[in-house]
């Protein structure tokens, strides 16, 4: 366990402690029963404690722990996604294959660091095999729709998310043995940006970015959140092989991608008439409600770092 890891961990505990104290004071001064915003804030902070604890435990087990953690995140996310899609009996084998074969194989390929295969396994082989299996079952009703929904689901929930643990395998010169910290950097900036966008939006939000999709996404929240999260990313440069400026720019990029991830997830939920993906994480909704920004940020961040630093 390096000093930097300890610093990061203590920093997170400090931030959460401050958040819990602020929420406790707000709750104490507010009229009872608590307004729903405050209730939700308390639930969210409590869930953050649990998530930080979960991620910390995974980090203790190193690369294997993080891969297992994200395989589980993919499972939960895919389950939430498929629940909202149109499935027919003929899709059974494809669906079972997504859960029982695609998830384990994709994460195993990351474990053995076979970049050439894990980067094309889903978009080439699975994308061809899945419609073939569905077609073999012979049910053509809404075929195109069903196949597209399955492919988009496996792309978001498994392929994109698997690029988070894949960061640990990048052979960046001078960064040996510090791959986990790069993951911590990405998660901290993207999730930090979500939280900061929420705070800036609640405090200053006036002008909606996409009123037809989400009432809670405002330009004030977006700009304030991404700017402050990028500054935070620059301040966390010591976790990474980057200079402070590079760290800030990469953080900004990851946060902008994260914003689009949240926007797309909101559009899907709006289309299906649900508010949240599920109820796994109290106060936040489902796994995808928490991971949507990471879904879009992870592969882009991964490939830029891979291109420019290895």
């Amino acid at each position: 366990m390096s000093d930097d890891t300890t610093c990061l961990f203590l920093g997170l505990v400090a931030v959460l402690t401050v958040a819990s104290l602020v929420a406790a004071i707000l709750s104490w001064r507010s009229p009872k029963p608590l307004p729903s915003t405050l209730d939700n804030l308390n639930a969210r902070i409590k869930a953050w404690w649990i998530m930080v604890a979960g991620i910390s435990v995974a980090f203790l087990f190193g690369k294997g722990g993080v891969i297992l953690l994200f395989a589980f995140v993919s499972f939960a996310a895919l389950r939430e996604y498929v629940t909202l899609t149109n499935t027919r009996r003929a899709d059974r084998w494809t669906l079972l294959g997504m859960f029982l074969i695609v998830i384990p194989v994709q994460y195993y390929l990351i474990w053995i660091d076979w970049y050439g295969l894990y980067s094309i396994f889903i978009p080439v082989y699975c994308f061809l095999a899945m419609p073939a299996i569905t077609a073999l079952r012979g049910d053509t009703s809404r075929f195109l729709e069903r196949v597209s929904e399955q492919q988009w689901g496996i792309m978001l929930s498994v392929y994109c998310l698997s690029h988070v643990p894949a960061l640990v395998t990048l052979p960046i010169p001078g960064n040996e043995g510090r791959g986990l910290l790069l993951i911590a950097f990405l998660i901290a900036t993207v999730q930090g940006s979500d939280v900061l966008q929420y705070i800036f939006g609640k405090l200053f939000g006036r002008h909606k970015v996409a009123p037809a999709i989400s009432p809670s996404k405002t330009w004030e929240g977006l700009i304030g959140g991404i700017a402050s999260a990028s500054l935070m990313g620059a301040g966390l440069y010591w976790l990474t092989p980057f200079s402070p400026l590079e760290a800030g720019v990469l953080a900004a990029l990851a946060c902008i991608m994260g914003f689009f991830g949240g926007l797309v997830a909101s559009a899907i939920k709006r289309d299906r008439g649900v508010k949240d993906w599920g109820h796994m994480i109290e106060g936040h909704g489902g796994m995808l409600d928490r991971a949507d920004s990471l879904v879009f940020a992870a592969p882009v961040f991964f490939h830029i770092v891979r291109y420019a630093w290895t």
């Binding site: 389950r79 629940t83 499935t87 009996r89 059974r92 669906l95 079972l96 029982l100």
Partner: peptide
């Protein structure tokens, strides 16, 4: 949808 008649393995859905 999880376990229709005649199926043995359940598909994970909420």
């Amino acid at each position: 949808r999880v376990l229709p008649k005649g199926a043995f393995l359940p598909v994970p859905l909420l």
